[in-house]
Design a protein around this nucleic acid. Structure first.
Lengths: 218, 218
DNA sequence: TGTACATCAGTGAACGCGCGTTCACTGATGTAC
DNA sequence: TGTACATCAGTGAACGCGCGTTCACTGATGTAC
């Protein structure tokens, strides 16, 4: 009989859900203090466990952060999929997807920081990304967030983009979304009355990109 | 008589150029190891100075990083200005400005990381940014990189953007540039034959944004 | 149903390390007289 | 021109701390018989 209880049930010698609890704690600390300010000791203390217990589930700090990033990509893909599945015209749903992206970056800074942390310097193995496990390869994962975006674009504009590869358009849209989200997170997006907020910025930008791609025939 | 010698002249008890040398060392280490991997001890050792000497010129680690970021904004503004000043039609010069931005982000990852580091979490005083010293206020600095971009847009498209505020267009362009640069730095831009590189991505995106803003009348 | 046992998740103490920062000091520099 | 002095940039040793990781261990769990 499988022993199972929720994440908040910490009674007893065995935690039972430690891996999940540690990922969750790491996400919260990264959100609060940034990726550099996150420590294993804090995560272990929050969960109510000895620091050494972590090593039953992760090879080390880097592995835990990588796990957080992986979960982040899963959650992002799910949220984008949900936004896309809802009611409305294709363009309404597509717009809502953009909102969902910005909302994810804002509400889940822990995930977002782990997912898009700059690579340390020397070339390590390529990180997991929105494109699936092997970035740059021919066919990205079907469930990946990037493919969701490509599919949404094709659904929203069934006539295509006048010969422009939808993946190219999707990449533009993604880069703009990421740029807006990170500038906002860095506190470097001007705010104030009369100044458009990030959602307006994204909506107008995406429209322009799509429009621009459509107008290529000129 | 003013005592002065170059940065590489470390002979003698007094360094003479220590502040500049420390900023330079910090920039290099941040570029190599990331913002989190940069330590004061390393910077001091590289410069050939006791770790305590640093405190004659900076309040601490944070102040040094802030200085690096500030220098970065200056250098960026200067490079953009140079790209804009060169020969060619306005649109050629504007395009070259985009290239210069991506080149800066790629060649100066130390500056770039310091400049756009995500805010730790709790709201501190607003960081210096491309908009000048007081982001969100009415009139950004004349020399700021953002204003350079706005001016370049107005120069390139003297007829305006059909009522759209040039600053709005500039913000879109900046966000896209930043998104492409950071995705590229994170190793999350797909690469390979047949896949457009970041310069092509930026050029097409900027064209689309400008075109989209122009086509607003529709 | 009861007991012995293998498994392995978690303990807790300890480690070596390197960090940012401090402190009283030293000695080179430029200036006042 | 020479000397005494104030200034202050840099020394070097030390600090307390908290980090990631290790190790031999312990005890709860589920299973074999």
């Amino acid at each position: 009989m499988r022993h199972w209880h929720g994440a908040s049930d910490k009674r007893g010698y065995h935690h039972g859900n430690l891996k999940e609890a540690l990922v969750e704690a790491a996400r919260r600390f990264i959100a609060e203090r940034g990726l550099g300010g996150f420590t294993l000791a804090d995560a272990a203390k929050l969960v109510g466990v000895s620091p050494a217990a972590l090593y039953r589930h992760f090879a080390g700090r880097e592995a835990l952060v990588a796990e957080v990033a992986g979960r982040g990509f899963d959650v992002l893909a799910e949220r984008l999929a949900r936004a896309l599945r809802g009611p409305g015209t294709p363009i309404e749903r597509f717009t809502r997807m953009g909102e969902a992206y910005l909302a994810f970056a804002e509400e889940e800074p822990g995930f977002y920081a782990a997912m898009f942390a700059p690579r340390g310097g020397e070339a390590e193995e390529p990180p997991r990304g929105p494109w699936g496990p092997a970035p740059g390869k021919d066919a990205p994962e079907p469930g990946g967030a990037f493919n969701l975006l490509v599919n949404a674009l094709m659904m929203t504009f069934p006539d295509g983009f006048d010969g422009v590869d939808p993946r190219f358009v999707a990449l533009e849209v993604w880069a703009l979304s990421h740029g807006i989200a990170t500038l906002s997170a860095a506190g470097q997006l001007p705010k104030g009355p009369g100044i458009p907020d990030k959602h307006e910025l994204l909506r107008a930008g995406v429209l322009a990109i799509v429009h621009g791609a459509l107008a290529r025939k000129a």
